[in-house]
């Protein structure tokens, strides 16, 4: 396993010093003029650490939903996360620390079913280094902290254009794993948090049932043209994406009814927006008609739902079933559903 104890610290310090000479500057640790190109490797290790590090640890998960800008509901629960260092992982929810709905067993069962999504998309990751540099800037040069008894380096980032949104991320100095990530909103409200309370780098994983995708997901390279063979229809990307987002992955997924969808994930370096489409055919899931639709307007209809900071839009546009979900403005998400004339 690549040891990054000293070199990562040096990277962070040197990078921050050379690239910004202070605070509130664009994130550009490696690759910035003046910073040795060799330091790029450290960021790669941070990106790869969840996949190539063998570990097991308990984490505390915190999620806050703000209602009407004043009433807040905070959910906290613990989970056991395991990785075999070869790409296989498992998240086992353990215990709710706050009241949860509808009840604790059901809540934990639901969380267990989302382990694949959580490990890949919920946990803080630097998913695309270039996009991360473009969209985020750091607020300080970082501080030395201890998380789960391990030495870590905590840096604070902000997303350009999102006022008051601050990420505080503590990287393990030995492995590059994110040991703690807290996301704060305006007025310092903790929006979401993930923190290791214990970490074992030599775990016994013999009893761990690693995650197996239940949606028959198959990733493919869009430019290779193999997607059409897998999907049975020609996949296409949206004409516009939210500002700062770039294509992160393309895949085929199968829904509960057995229909294949094209899935495209976009990232701004950290956050994700998902775009899915399929050609409308016989047996397609029909959304219950709304009062507006019943007025028999010939126009296509898209439904829009907002859950806190995340919005979801779904509908049929020009013969395509479309879904777009993510933390972006509703206008940007709806623009993604626009189809060519």
């Amino acid at each position: 396993m690549l040891k990054v104890t000293r070199s990562l610290l040096a990277t962070l310090l040197l990078g921050v010093t050379l690239s910004s000479c202070g605070v509130d500057q664009p994130v550009g640790l490696p690759g910035t003029p003046g910073v040795p190109a060799a330091l790029q490797g450290e960021w790669n290790q941070i990106q790869l650490a969840p996949w190539n590090t063998r570990y097991q640890g308990e984490r505390l998960v915190t999620v806050t939903v703000e209602l009407d800008g004043s009433e807040r509901v905070q959910t906290r629960y613990t989970e056991l996360v395991s990785s075999d260092g070869s790409g296989r992982f498992n998240i086992l929810p353990l215990q709710a620390e706050t009241p949860v709905a509808p009840d604790e067993p059901t809540f934990l069962t639901l969380q267990a079913q989302r382990e694949g999504f959580y490990y890949r998309y919920r946990d803080f990751r630097i998913r695309d280094l270039e996009a991360f540099r473009e969209n985020y800037r750091h607020l300080d040069t970082g501080t030395s902290v201890t998380v789960a008894g391990r030495s870590a380096w905590e840096v604070r980032f902000v997303r350009n254009g999102k006022k008051g949104r601050v990420y505080a991320v503590a990287f393990d100095l030995e492995t590059g794993l994110v040991l703690r990530s807290n996301e704060y909103g305006p007025r310092g409200l903790l929006l979401s948090g993930l923190e290791f309370t214990s970490l074992d780098l030599d775990p016994d994983l013999s009893g761990v049932a690693f995650f197996v995708p239940g949606n028959d997901e198959q990733g493919f390279d869009l430019e290779s043209g193999e997607g059409e063979g897998i999907l049975g229809f020609k996949p296409h990307l949206p004409k516009s994406v939210p500002a700062g987002f770039v294509l992160y992955e393309t895949a085929s997924v199968t829904d509960d009814m057995g229909y294949r969808w094209f899935k495209a994930g976009f990232t701004d370096g950290v956050e994700m927006v998902f775009f899915l489409h399929r050609e409308r055919g016989a047996g397609t899931f029909d959304l219950p008609m709304t009062a507006t639709a019943k007025l028999a307007t010939p126009r296509d209809e898209v439904r829009l739902f907002r859950a806190g900071r995340v919005s979801a839009a779904q509908g049929t546009v020009r013969g395509q079933d479309l879904i777009v979900i993510g933390e972006a403005s509703e206008r940007e998400l709806l623009q993604m559903l626009r189809m060519e004339e």
Partner: peptide, 8 residues
């Protein structure tokens, strides 16, 4: 947008 938006 070329389609109707219904908030649910």
């Amino acid at each position: 947008y070329g389609f109707d938006v219904v908030r649910v």
